[in-house]
């Protein structure tokens, strides 16, 4: 492992701790935009500390699916955080690699573990959230893979480091495919972080909640792990958006700095998007995601007209 790879790898490990801060940043920016003072961005860490001290519950009639779900979700999410590209020389992790499709698979595994745990308690609110989560994921996965497709076409690989390097090239920015992907990835950020107009992390109203639903039956360290996961997902999708789609220099040091610097900007943009629109009706949100997927298809077609094998 070269020195650059070691530094970037260490940065990825640090990122494991940074996710909740990013989510806190969104909350602070949102509060300010709505005229409230709000908590400071470190509030999620205080929440985690408070939850960590409390005991977990084992609801009657639940089994291994409920008990292992937070650990499984946290493990796969941590793996996905490590894979977010911060540079072309980032390490190819042993056992994990650096493949973009594996990140999609890891996020899907977390979703499945959450749904299985909801079935294990069979609590109606958790089921409601899990069912909506999986239903949105149908068009959400198409959107995510379509986005990766338009990124992979110019790069010629699904290796995240290759995708990062391609976004640093000026030629990539001349293809309409990349611009289509840029628009689509904005939707990806909203859906995967569970933000308006798709989902709303600030409410536990059964008419609206999605990601919060399965969390209702958890307490203590279980809940702490799941809360950390919600923050880590901000790092994963915003990191993917910044590393694969937003402009950054191709040099190792400058590239990594710019990629990380994009994250607060994305957090602020997310807060702006959340504050400026109402939540979408349940039946309509999948159609919004599907139209994003169709946009990436247009990008792929435009690429096929423009450049070759």
């Amino acid at each position: 492992m070269t020195g650059t790879a070691a530094v970037l790898g260490a940065l990825s490990v640090l990122a494991l701790a940074a996710g909740p801060g990013l989510a806190g940043l969104v909350q602070t920016a949102k509060a300010r935009l709505q005229g409230r003072r709000g908590a400071d961005p470190l509030q999620p860490y205080r929440d985690l500390r408070r939850l960590w001290r409390r005991s977990v519950v084992d609801p009657e009639g639940t089994g291994a699916a409920y008990r292992t779900a937070p650990a499984v979700i946290a493990a796969v999410t941590a793996a996905a955080v490590l894979m977010v590209p911060l540079g072309a020389d980032a390490p190819r992790w042993p056992f994990l690699g650096a493949d973009a499709l594996l990140v999609v698979g890891l996020l899907a595994t977390a979703r499945m573990a959450g749904a299985v745990s909801a079935w294990d308690t069979s609590a109606a609110f958790g089921m409601m959230g899990a069912a909506r989560d999986l239903a949105y994921a149908v068009s959400g996965e198409a959107l995510l893979l379509g986005t990766l497709l338009v990124a992979a076409l110019p790069a010629g690989t699904t290796d995240l480091r290759g995708l990062w390097a391609a976004a640093a090239q000026a030629e990539t920015w001349r293809t309409p495919a990349h611009w289509a992907g840029l628009l689509a990835v904005a939707l990806v950020v909203l859906v995967e972080t569970g933000r308006q107009p798709i989902d709303n992390p600030d409410t536990h109203l059964e008419l609206t909640m999605i990601h919060e639903g399965p969390l209702l039956e958890y307490a203590g360290r279980d809940l702490a792990m799941l809360t950390w996961v919600a923050g880590a997902r901000h790092w994963i999708v915003m990191g993917l958006a910044a590393g694969v789609f937003l402009p950054h220099p191709s040099g190792a040091a400058a590239g990594a700095v710019v990629t990380v610097a994009w994250l607060p900007v994305l957090a602020a943009a997310t807060a702006l998007a959340e504050s400026s629109q109402a939540k979408m009706r349940l039946g309509r949100a999948p159609r919004l995601l599907a139209s994003g997927a169709v946009l990436t298809l247009l990008g792929a077609v435009a690429w096929a007209f423009g450049a070759g094998l």
Partner: peptide, 10 residues
């Protein structure tokens, strides 16, 4: 030390 509890169901 997990607490046994009924399913909360809000």
């Amino acid at each position: 030390s997990a607490a046994r509890a009924p399913i909360w169901l809000c």
